[in-house]
Computed example of a mutant assay.
Amino acid sequence: MTIKAIPAAPADRPRAAASFDVLPQALERWNPAIRAAAEDEPNTISILDPIGYDPWTGEGVTAKRISGILRGMGGADVTVNVNSPGGDMFEGLAIYNLLREYKGSVTIKVLGIAASAASVIAMAGDQVQVARSGFLMIHNCWSWAVGNRHAFREFADTLEPFDQAMADIYAARTGDPIEKMAELMDAESWIGGSAAVEQGFADSLLPSDSVKESAKAGTAAQIAAHRLDVILAKQGMPRSERRSLIQDIKSGTPSAAGGDKPGAVPPDTPSAIAPDLTASLNGAQEILNSLKGA
């Protein structure tokens, strides 16, 4: 499929007081265990985590990492396996540009979900294949911000070029008007595998035997951390704070808990967190115990 030239994505990040984040609904529906059936194929890039730098692990799916991998492939054809809930839209657009500019042929395989920033990356393929049970999820930029009313007005204006760039990318892939893509983004649309092919987001469905659910996708502690991450995201806690809190719980840091017992939730939870966060955490005691015991 020949894709028309895409206008350059915005070169600047949003204001320092704001950051992109994973949409909680996407994080909740993401199954990290979904993998390619053949994981040892040559010239393959795996995007199987949230997009952007992960302060918890010190890793993450970043443009810097993808750029390094592509340089090492020397222009050979590449397959990119995707199962990601999205994340940092700036990183997603940067990775998209890297893949579009790559000299070799790029085949994108959506194994599970490609949501938000990951759906933008999926559009970079010369060929895009999606699992019949897979999903693309497209929406407007979703982020966190702090500041007064003037800062928020300016921040909304800062986000608009990113939304326009995404709509243009989807329109270029599907051949539909940008206005239609903007409507789908406004509606936070989940597009199943067959529908993605019918609407032009993908070229074909993946064979059913090309996807598997791996029991080795994560340790018990990692699975528990993911479950807790979903709870915290739904309560309105930014990604960086979620990672920091989970790490503190694992290490049993009393200062992070704000009480005498490691992992205890303080009564004076910071105002940046939803008021009912304490109740949610208390309801996830099994998860906390799993993490503290890891």
Score class of each variant (00 low, 15 high):
Thr2Phe: 08
Ala5Gln: 12
Ile6Gln: 04
Ala8Pro: 01
Ala11Leu: 15
Asp12Pro: 01
Arg15Thr: 00
Arg15Lys: 09
Ala18Phe: 09
Ser19Asp: 05
Pro24Thr: 10
Gln25Ala: 14
Glu28Arg: 15
Trp30Ile: 08
Ala33Pro: 05
Arg35Pro: 06
Ala38Tyr: 04
Glu39Gln: 14
Glu39Phe: 08
Asp40Asn: 13
Glu41Ala: 14
Thr44Gly: 08
Ser46Leu: 10
Asp49Trp: 04
Pro50Thr: 10
Ile51Asn: 07
Tyr53Ala: 02
Gly58Lys: 03
Gly58Trp: 02
Glu59Gln: 13
Glu59Thr: 14
Val61Gln: 11
Ser67Glu: 11
Gly68His: 10
Leu70Gly: 03
Gly74Gln: 12
Ala76Arg: 13
Asp77His: 11
Val78Thr: 10
Asn83Asp: 08
Met89His: 04
Leu93Gln: 04
Leu93Lys: 02
Leu93Trp: 03
Ile95Val: 14
Asn97Ala: 12
Leu98Pro: 03
Glu101Arg: 13
Tyr102Lys: 03
Gly104Val: 03
Ser105Gly: 06
Ile108Ser: 00
Ile108Lys: 00
Gly112Tyr: 01
Ile113Lys: 00
Ala117Gln: 02
Ala118Ser: 13
Ser119Val: 07
Ala124Ser: 15
Asp126Glu: 10
Gln127Ala: 00
Ala131Thr: 04
Phe135Cys: 07
Cys141His: 08
Trp142Ser: 09
Trp142Asp: 00
Ser143Cys: 12
Val146Ile: 11
Ala151Gly: 09
Arg153Thr: 13
Phe155Val: 08
Ala156His: 11
Pro161Ser: 09
Gln164Ile: 09
Ala165Leu: 05
Ala165Val: 04
Tyr170Ser: 05
Ala171Tyr: 04
Thr174Asp: 00
Pro177Val: 06
Ile178Val: 15
Glu183Trp: 01
Glu183Gly: 07
Asp186Ser: 06
Ile191Phe: 01
Gln199Asn: 01
Ala202Lys: 03
Pro207Gln: 08
Val211Gly: 11
Ala217Trp: 14
Gly218Ala: 15
Gln222Pro: 01
Ile223Val: 15
Ala225Ile: 05
Asp229Lys: 14
Ile231Leu: 15
Leu232Asn: 00
Leu232Arg: 05
Ala233Cys: 06
Gly236Thr: 01
Met237Leu: 15
Ser240Lys: 06
Leu245Ala: 03
Asp248Ser: 15
Ile249Val: 15
Thr253Met: 06
Ala256Met: 11
Ala256Gln: 06
Gly259Val: 10
Gly259Gln: 12
Gly259Asp: 12
Gly259Lys: 13
Pro267Leu: 12
Asp268Val: 07
Thr269Cys: 01
Pro270Leu: 07
Ser271Val: 10
Ala272Lys: 12
Ile273Gly: 00
Ile273Tyr: 14
Ser280Cys: 05
Asn282Pro: 04
Ala284Cys: 05
Gln285Tyr: 07
Leu288Tyr: 03
Asn289Gly: 02
Leu291Gln: 09
